[in-house]
């Protein structure tokens, strides 16, 4: 069937519209990156030449570096736990048959649907009951719960796509379940595990709303630090900080995606 002139014109219009949508998605980010190189003293438009002055100010700012350190330790810590717990859950959900599977899947995805403000309040109140107050520990625990569904979803998707023949072959050749897991399943899903881990790191590193409820006053992660800076006075080095965050948050999933794709070729 040949496309009529009319529908071809419609497709062109749709194409133009979609280009506009892409511009809409990228322009604000481009503005932040552009302003971070601004040579003017105010840091605002109009641009007055290019300079790295805001980056120099940024890397001389101890409180921001401190926030980076907090964010990185937090992200790595919670991601390690979320990955360990999530991988086991994903394997159980895909490889074993049992009742209430749907209910459990929904439960695991629950943090995605409950408003983050409510999650923040819930954990805060519950842990206070047990004598735990707003602290780094609460952040670690909370971020683990937030990151868990993403690890499960990523690993689950990979496991579903993985044929069970390899595992069955290993079992029939005399390997026990543990050996099969260690020698066959684990190597096959390791890219997905790494992908899930990086996903979790990204989720934790980026989280702000729940973090505002859980953090001890005085402790700042990078997002809450930015939030605080924006609410007091907007200093121009915030654009440099923004650009660094843009690069970090783009690179993480890119590396993750690359690793997953690179290693899942040899199926």
């Amino acid at each position: 069937m040949s496309a009529t002139l009319e529908s071809r014109a419609a497709l062109w219009l749709l194409g133009l519209f979609s280009v506009a949508v892409y511009i809409f998605q990228f322009a604000p980010i481009a503005v932040v990156m552009l302003l971070s190189f601004n040579g003017s003293r105010s840091g605002a438009f109009p641009m007055e030449g290019l300079s790295l002055q805001w980056y120099e100010k940024l890397f001389a700012n101890d409180s921001i570096l401190q926030a980076f350190q907090t964010s990185i330790v937090l992200a790595l810590g919670c991601s390690l736990v979320a990955t360990a717990v999530g991988v086991m859950a994903a394997i159980a959900l895909v490889r074993y048959q049992f009742k209430a599977k749907n209910g459990i899947s929904t439960l695991i995805s629950l943090p995605l649907l409950v408003p983050e403000v409510v999650l923040g309040v819930a954990l805060l109140m519950f842990l206070k009951l047990m004598g735990v107050y707003r602290s780094f520990g609460m952040l670690l625990l909370g971020h683990t719960v937030l990151a868990l569904p993403f690890v499960v979803l990523v690993v689950q998707a990979r496991l579903v796509g993985l044929r069970q023949n390899f595992e069955e072959a290993a079992l029939s050749l005399g390997a026990n379940r543990l050996q099969t897991f260690r020698e066959v399943t684990l190597p096959l899903i390791s890219p997905a595990i790494l992908g899930g881990f990086l996903f979790a790191v990204a989720i934790s590193f980026d989280n702000i709303t729940a973090t505002l409820f859980w953090k001890k006053p005085g402790i700042e992660t990078v997002p809450t630090k930015i939030f605080a800076m924006l609410r007091t006075s907007i200093s121009p080095e915030i654009n440099a900080l923004g650009s660094v965050m843009i690069i970090v948050t783009i690179l993480l999933p890119l590396i993750g995606g690359f690793v997953v794709r690179r290693f899942s070729r040899g199926r």
């Binding site: 998605q25 990228f26 322009a27 604000p28 980010i29 503005v31 932040v32 302003l35 990204a202 590193f205 980026d206 702000i208 997002p223 930015i226 939030f227 924006l230 907007i234 915030i238 654009n239 923004g242 965050m245 843009i246 970090v248 948050t249 783009i250 993480l252 999933p253």
Partner: peptide
């Protein structure tokens, strides 16, 4: 999906500059 990955607070903040 690329902007989707970029830090939420930065994407929100960007609108102040826009």
């Amino acid at each position: 999906f690329l902007p989707f990955w970029i830090s939420y607070i930065i994407r929100t903040m960007a609108w102040i500059s826009v």
